[in-house]
Design a protein around this nucleic acid. Structure first.
Length: 934
RNA sequence: GGGUCUGUAGCUCAGUUGGUCAGAGCGCACCCCUGAUAAGGGUGAGGUCGGAGGUUCAAAUCCUCCCAGACCCA
């Protein structure tokens, strides 16, 4: 007889080979065709909501790994909240306005279009942005990210633009907006102000000069230094790398705490920071200097200096921004050309003087330098200084200098009329700082970080001199420059127009339409708003457009750079508008690096392209990597790491497959075994699974996905593969197909699979959905329509048997068996039999297992005895508390049962089944065996 | 240059308030199985916890400095 036919081997169509690259698109198609996301919204209706507000990616270019990480993390959060019983919608967004898109269009259509036909230019921008959105959307979907992809929010939607204006109107009404003259980063090529984010720092060679500012009143200086009188003319020496800013000089700043020395070179007297005297005089080629006196900077405040080439007297002022790392310790101050200069200038009421036009040339009427380009003027300034005898020293310096991120050209600081959101005038900074403290920041240091940024930041310049963006829809009085008194109402009028006709409605607007007779007195502000305001007002705009999204959101989740970006701009607009934060919690993730800890860059050739990973290993493997990596730090990815992840994936997949295979022929509706009748180890397995689920859910709630990966993988390898499934497969294979022992195991495996599929769903979305389809029993269309598995209550109670102790004995036996194996005495553990010598509760437990004990160790025989009766050759294997367990293993001499492969003395005792052991006889040709423990 | 943060076995991660805290899984090596089979099981070797000082009876865990890296800023 061929007993093999009586063995219940695993049977499932769930493929071992994932073939994700090929199979995932099919699942994707089904999600789309069956409207899985939309159905989920219906199913989740009425539950408590969890709102993750999407930070919109910029609608330009193919998605890279950073996008993938961000979207997948969001997807994991949303899906896990959904499975945890929340209604968690996800409305993706795109950021559409701004310079990069303008540049794309300029590249293809030429710069002229922008000036000649701005309407057509904006239309081209719009179409370009839409095409980018379409491309990115497909890639995001392919990652398995589930959301309302048919109804995303895009910042160039007329409704969004209109709502943004309404948000701005409220901010203005709340008194945060002002028009000011202020130095801003100015790109000579853009002819526009740049946001901080649009500036990058690159090496540049600049002239570095030491310049004399002659002291007007020698007697005053002498007094301040406490010397009787000065025998030579004295100068304060400043050091600068931007000679062209000297025409705008209004003061010389010293550090109040630093010490300054009056130096006699023989020919003249110089005032220098004491610690820099040697360096300066050395480079100036001065020998034999005499230090006449020393005094702290604060003592020199107010000393009058002669501007080196203009008829202008400028004061010595004090500033904390002065350093003595290099230079002279005296800082040339031009409030029209520097942020710190501007700040300190405010204190001393210095003029914000800016003689430079938007084209980067000195304006008409600028003495000496009129019409010259600023960087070219450097040379001329130096010549003039030389002529006037004001140049002490000149050299070149290679240093980091601000450049336009787009043009890669050096930018300047230039004071211009700009619109600002004030950090102080209506308490914005104070409010924002207060709100930061109320938000939960994950990881915690994020709070510290954004706090210091808000605490230190200057007012927010929100105006841009560009074409592709939401207009700063204001009317100012032609003569006074004042805002129209009905500005807030007018903004609402404009918003209505924009809602219908988009931003073109403003640009095309005849002011008379809104202002009537006043139109002649007012002009439209031509500026557009900083794009950061666009996305920053999403908390207001999106809920107005999409009923699923609410304000404030439960979570914002972006890369750590967004502390200065979107987290920051959103906080400011929200506090300015509503006096509260737009989010209850903020989660940040790090950036990708390679396995050597370096950032990914084309030049290093270490860039991992998500599309390529998806096309080979599959999106689920990429998702698993994202989940497995602790996003709080940098996230390292390389081919090796990917290989490891793919291996882990296979382990998890195969575990699921084996569970499914053993569930062949199991119908939970009729075959589930009542808990009271389940075999003890099956109950243990379910209990253990439940325990793990508690940990998994806790980790999802605290966004610690990498722990889930560790725990679940560990569970599959150790608890299941290394123990439960290993010892149970004998029972599933050899007992009767419908027998209680087998059904008990199937019941446990069924529960385990039910739980496992749900744990995996937020991370391995494709695979979980695939598993779901192969699960027995009636079930919903998608795994995502479920919440985490609810175990039968009785199975969540801890078992009375001390399985940990048994597992200790088991691993000790494994070590002993390994010795036999290496000695060539046995191969499989079934070739051996084992005697365990112990005492106390462990002995009682093991003995209570009786004949079933051998199944725990997968040996052909196993017996438990009192420790006292141990033979001399037993090995002390488990050290317990005052209780050592001894083990003796040996090859068994019994005959192998052809059916169950155990070597049993009762093989051959049954005349009809001479090759079988007694257990198999009853399973094949009798009532079947009983199992209580294993 | 400044701010924030990170650095535990080849890889991914655990290590609560300092005192079995030097761990897990994977990978690797070797062995076994061939009824999860391009699977499965077992055993084992790997780390002076980035480095150097210091505090303490005791530090991966606290302090200082240094090195490397990331983000933001200048």
């Amino acid at each position: 007889m061929d007993y093999k036919q009586t063995i219940n081997l695993p049977q499932t169509d769930f493929p071992m080979k994932a073939d994700l690259a090929r199979r995932e698109p099919d699942i994707l198609k089904r999600w789309e065709e069956t409207q899985t996301y939309q159905k989920l919204r219906e199913i989740a209706k009425g539950r408590p909501t969890f709102i993750l507000q999407d930070g919109p990616p910029y609608a330009n270019g193919a998605i890279h790994l950073g996008h993938a990480i961000n979207k997948v993390l969001k997807d994991i959060v949303v899906k896990s909240r959904s499975m945890d019983g929340f209604d968690a919608p996800y409305v993706p967004g795109w950021d559409c306005h701004g310079l990069p898109i303008e540049h794309q269009i300029e590249k293809t259509r030429g710069k002229e279009v922008k000036a000649l036909d701005p309407r057509a230019f904006r239309q081209a921008c719009r179409e370009f942005a839409q095409s980018q959105i379409n491309g990115q959307r497909e890639d995001f979907k392919r990652l398995g990210v589930m959301g309302d992809w048919d109804r995303p929010y895009i910042t160039m939607a007329p409704k969004y633009e209109a709502e943004q204006l309404r948000s701005f109107a409220e901010i203005l009404r709340n008194g945060h907006v002002y028009k000011g003259l202020k130095p801003v980063h100015w790109c000579l090529d853009c002819r526009s102000a740049l946001a901080e984010a649009e500036v990058e720092y690159e090496d540049k060679v600049s002239p570095a000069i030491d310049v004399r500012f002659a002291v007007k009143d020698s007697a005053d200086l002498a007094k301040r230094f406490g010397v009787p009188g000065l025998k030579s003319p004295a100068s304060v020496i400043i050091w600068t790398t931007t000679p062209w800013t000297l025409p705008a000089n209004q003061a010389v700043a010293l550090g109040p705490e630093f010490r300054y020395t009056l130096v006699d070179t023989g020919a003249e007297l110089l005032v220098l920071a004491s610690s820099l005297v040697d360096a300066v005089t050395k480079r100036a080629g001065v020998e034999n200097v005499t230090r006449l006196a020393e005094v702290e900077g604060a003592k020199l405040e107010g000393v009058k200096l002669q501007h080196p080439f203009y008829e202008r007297v400028v004061p010595i002022i004090l500033g904390d921004h002065v350093t003595i790392d290099d230079g002279t310790g005296a800082v040339h101050t031009a409030p029209g050309h520097g942020a710190e200069d501007f700040e300190v200038g405010l204190k001393y009421k210095l003029e914000v003087y800016n003689p430079v036009g938007s084209d980067g040339r000195f304006v008409a009427g600028t003495p000496i330098f009129e019409g010259e380009r600023v960087f070219d003027a450097n040379k001329h300034v130096i010549e003039v200084l030389k002529e006037r005898g004001a140049l002490l020293h000149e050299t070149k310096l290679n240093h980091r200098y601000a450049h336009c991120w787009r043009h890669k050209t050096p930018v300047i600081y230039r004071a211009t009329a700009q619109w600002f959101i004030s950090m102080e005038q209506a308490g914005l900074r104070k409010g924002a700082l207060r709100e930061i403290a109320k938000v939960k920041w994950v990881p915690g240091w994020g709070e510290n970080r954004i706090n210091s940024m808000i605490a230190d930041r200057p007012d927010w310049c929100i105006s841009r001199q560009r074409a592709w963006g939401v207009p700063l829809a204001l009317f100012t009085h032609k003569a006074t420059g004042e805002l129209h008194p009905r500005t807030v109402e007018l903004l609402e009028d404009v918003a209505k127009l924009v809602e219908q006709g988009g931003i073109d409605a403003w640009f095309d607007l005849d002011p008379a339409v809104l202002l009537g007779g006043e139109a002649a007195e007012y002009e439209k502000v031509p500026d557009i708003m900083d794009v950061w305001f666009d996305s920053g007002s999403a908390h207001h705009c999106v809920p107005k457009m999409h009923p699923d999204v609410k304000d404030p959101a439960d979570l914002y989740l972006e890369g750590s750079d967004q502390h200065r970006g979107w987290f920051h701009s959103s906080l400011l607009t929200s506090v300015a508008q509503h006096d509260r934060a737009p989010y209850k919690a903020v989660l940040t993730h790090g950036f990708t690096i390679d396995d050597k800890g370096r950032k990914m860059s084309k030049s290093l050739g270490n860039v991992v392209v998500p599309q390529k990973v998806i096309g080979t290993l599959g999106a689920d493997v990429l998702r698993l990597w994202i989940a497995a990596t602790d996003y709080a730090n940098e996230m390292a990815l390389s081919d090796e790491i990917l290989k490891r992840v793919a291996e882990s994936y296979r382990r998890i997949r195969n575990t699921a497959r084996f569970l499914l295979g053993n569930l062949d022929g199991f119908d939970p509706a009729t075959d589930k075994v009542p808990v009271s009748e389940m075999v003890a180890v099956d109950r243990w397995a379910v209990w253990r699974t439940h325990q793990l689920q508690e940990e998994v859910i806790a980790a999802y709630r605290s966004y610690q996905f990498h722990l889930i990966y560790q725990k679940v993988h560990n569970f599959c390898s150790v608890d299941l593969g290394g123990f439960y499934l290993d010892i149970t497969k004998d029972r599933v294979y050899t007992t009767g197909k419908k027998s209680l022992p087998r059904r008990s195991a199937q019941t446990a495996m069924f529960y385990i699979a039910e739980a496992l599929a749900r744990w995996l769903a937020p991370i391995l979305s494709f695979t979980a959905e695939e598993i779901w389809r192969y699960m027995p029993g009636a079930r919903s269309e998608s795994v995502f329509f479920n919440t985490f598995f609810e175990f039968p209550k009785e199975l969540t109670q801890p078992p009375t048997i001390d399985w940990d102790a048994i597992l200790n004995v088991r691993s000790a036996i494994s070590r002993e068996l390994e010795k036999l194996r290496n000695a060539g005495s046995i191969g499989a553990p079934l070739d051996a039999e084992v005697d365990v010598y112990t005492k106390g509760p462990l002995l009682e437990t093991l003995q209570s297992f009786g004949e079933e004990l051998r199944f725990v160790f997968i040996t052909s025989a196993a017996r438990a005895h009192s420790a006292d009766s141990r033979p001399a050759d037993a090995v002390a294997a488990v050290e317990g508390e005052g209780n050592t367990t001894w083990i003796a293993v040996k090859p068994t001499t019994a005959t192998k049962c052809v059916r169950c492969w155990h070597k049993r003395p009762d093989v051959g005792q049954h005349p009809n089944h001479p090759e079988l052991c007694g257990r198999c006889v009853t399973n094949v040709d009798g009532p079947g065996e009983q199992r209580r423990f294993t």
